[in-house]
């Protein structure tokens, strides 16, 4: 029982990331009809916003320490962060320590701007082209973005830590009456799960309770009729692209302490997120979220030693296996709508 609870918890944070990426993918597909293979790269760039913020806050001046030497035997140049000299060691150090949450402030404008630039500069030219062309151009864009990041940040993972307040893990075992240390879960992963719920709730509320969201939903259902009513739906859809990019970026920012950012982390999530979208149902936002969490948890279960001893290698194929079963039994996915990608 404790092992099952543990894997459910494990699946939640992974599922949160899948759900957030799949949510953005579905928003873009639902509004613009584009299959965006660069969405994983947006998640990766979000994670690198955390790296950039960490480096900005760690911008330093050099102080020579004559008592110590560097690897060449010269006096050691010690790096002193500007924020610590400006705001004091305590507050300045605190800012550095909280660089990941603070980088949300950087990620939102960067990701929205990047989303606008991508949509206006490249993707809009491919609206009337076949899906294969859209996939090729967005996949190419993803590789370009990856290589740019690698050029500036290198290929190695870059450690990005969560604030000390959230280091360590919570012992659910004690809380639920099991033995100590049997069900533990890191605090930051709990933060990530709650953060994902807030973002998902925010996006749904925006679409459900605002006039803008209502128009977008109407456009998703029947773009032509909304256009005939004199509404500039294209502009709203561009904004939705920016919003989807921001969602992917924020998912990446907060994931940085869980998975040290590296230039190809987006690709690892992209393929799985596409499967999530297909399982959830093309164009269905609730479906994307539901499938994200479901597949995240199932993937965790499949990684259990007990399961792998029965079916070796199941952890590698479980998501695709589920996708096959769902598509055979429910061709439109769990919550897919009639008419989407069926013409």
């Amino acid at each position: 029982m404790d092992a099952i609870l543990l894997q459910i918890l494990n699946g939640l944070d992974k599922g949160s990331a899948y759900a957030l990426i799949a949510l953005g993918l579905t928003l873009i597909f639902g509004t613009l009809g584009v299959v965006n293979f660069a969405h994983g790269a947006l998640f990766m760039i979000g994670a690198f916003c955390a790296v950039v913020m960490q480096r900005l806050l760690n911008l330093s001046y050099e102080v020579v320490d004559p008592t110590r030497t560097d690897f060449l035997g010269n006096p050691l140049k010690v790096q002193m962060p500007y924020v610590e000299s400006w705001f004091g060691t305590e507050f300045g150090g605190g800012l550095i320590e909280w660089s990941v949450p603070l980088s949300i402030l950087l990620a939102i404008p960067v990701m929205v701007g990047l989303g606008f630039a991508m949509e206006r500069g490249l993707i809009k030219h491919f609206y009337k082209r076949p899906h294969a062309d859209q996939i090729l151009v967005t996949f190419g864009l993803a590789i370009v973005l990856q290589e740019i990041i690698k050029y500036f940040f290198g290929a190695n993972p870059i450690p990005t830590t969560s604030p000390d307040l959230f280091s360590g893990s919570f012992d659910f075992g004690v809380l639920l009456g099991f033995d100590p240390n049997t069900i533990i879960y890191p605090y930051w992963r709990m933060v990530y799960f709650l953060f994902a719920l807030i973002i998902i709730g925010g996006v749904f509320s925006f679409l459900q309770f605002t006039t803008f969201g209502m128009v977008v939903r109407a456009g998703m259902a029947d773009r032509e009729t909304v256009g005939l009513l004199g509404i500039n739906i294209d502009r709203r859809f561009t904004i939705m692209f920016g919003l989807a990019a921001a969602v992917a970026g924020l998912a990446g920012v907060m994931y940085a302490p869980i998975l040290s950012p590296n230039y190809h982390m987006g690709m690892d999530f992209l393929v799985l997120s596409f499967v999530v979208v297909v399982v959830g149902g093309m164009g269905s936002l609730p479906g994307a979220v539901l499938a994200g969490f479901l597949l995240g948890i199932l993937q965790s279960f499949a990684s259990m030693n007990e399961v792998k001893s029965i079916i070796p290698g199941i952890d590698q194929v479980i998501i695709y296996l589920i996708a096959i079963i769902i598509l055979l039994t429910r061709p439109r996915g769990l919550m897919g709508r009639k008419g989407v990608m069926e013409d």
């Binding site: 092992a3 992963r189 965790s300 990684s303 030693n305």
Partner: peptide
């Protein structure tokens, strides 16, 4: 990437040493 589902069973196994035969990004993660 995410090794959490491989790490958590370690605690329930009664082991007191974890040996990571990993290299590169896998080791970091």
């Amino acid at each position: 990437g995410d090794f959490s589902s491989y790490i958590t069973p370690v605690l329930q196994s009664g082991a007191d040493v974890l040996i990571l035969n990993h290299y590169g990004g896998d080791m970091v993660n």
